[in-house]
Design a protein around this nucleic acid. Structure first.
Length: 249
DNA sequence: ATGGGCACCTGGCTGC
DNA sequence: TGCAGCCAGGTGCCCA
């Protein structure tokens, strides 16, 4: 049985007024993921959650008092609360009683990066006639999902492709290398628990260790781990990009 | 259809 | 010590 307490409705989008009534008394039937959205399936519908940049979900004992930025709770049987914490409020929560894959936030999402559908041929096809910088393109959720700012820079480094290169200038071979680099980077990051830059910890409170494997991200001015020349940084569409101008062309 | 820029927020750090 | 300015792990939307 689930009950809900919402303390702050103003997330990225306001939490719908009828949300509490919709979910009350239901049982969790399963948990899925699509891109960076977490899908919690209940009897009559599905919660669609996003953690944004600073959100986290924790299971806490029912008598744990809420702290600042603890925006909502789902109270479970057995004395546990699923609690959402998000200082920046870039996270979101939606409820749908239809097939979640058809929800506007999910309907147009591209293939998962670790799926067979995402490969070099696919990426090469998606880059044709596109003048945008390749870094921008691989962060576009209608091209591939799951590639955030850290992993975009890292994958481009591994594929030896400049982040500024117009997407349509990639050769088929480079597209293959980049698709594989994206799979490798994400796969290794998952295996090592993600990238803790400042305060990221997983649900058990453990830090991620992929930071130690970063080749360029947040290493501006430091020696490239391959060629020893200085790692460079510049702003690309309001986001920091890191790269090695010797290794990447 | 595509590309570019903005918006939504708080908190932590830096430098004056 | 205080404060202004800048930057941050994301991504949808609006406009040209």
């Amino acid at each position: 049985m689930a009950d809900v307490v919402v303390r702050e409705r103003r997330l990225r989008w306001p939490i719908a007024a009828d949300f509490e009534a919709a979910i009350r008394g239901q049982t969790v039937r399963g948990i899925d993921r699509r891109a960076k959205y977490i899908l919690i399936r209940f009897d009559t519908g599905t919660l669609i959650l996003h953690l944004g940049m600073s959100g986290s979900l924790r299971l806490v004992k029912a008598d744990t008092p809420p702290r600042i930025h603890d925006h909502w709770d789902i109270r479970m049987d057995g004395g546990w609360i699923l609690r959402f914490h998000d200082p920046r409020r870039f996270g979101s929560l939606h409820w749908t009683e239809a097939d979640p894959a058809l929800h506007p936030l999910l309907a147009k999402l591209a293939p998962e990066p670790l799926s067979r559908a995402f490969d070099g041929e696919y990426l090469h096809r998606m880059t044709r006639k596109r003048s945008v910088a390749i870094k921008h393109l691989i962060m576009n959720s209608q091209v591939v999902v799951g590639v955030g700012n850290i992993y975009a820079s890292e994958a481009l480094f591994r594929a030896r492709v400049s982040p500024r290169r117009a997407a349509r200038r990639l050769t088929r071979q480079e597209a293959r290398a980049l698709a594989q680099a994206i799979k490798d980077v994400l796969g290794e990051a998952i295996k090592t628990g993600g990238t803790t830059l400042r305060d990221y910890v997983n649900a058990d409170g453990a830090q991620g260790f992929f930071r130690q494997k970063l080749f360029v991200y947040e290493r501006a001015g430091e020696a490239c781990r391959v060629c020893r020349s200085a790692v460079k940084q510049f702003a690309q569409g309001q986001r920091s990009t890191y790269w090695c101008s010797t290794c990447q062309r």
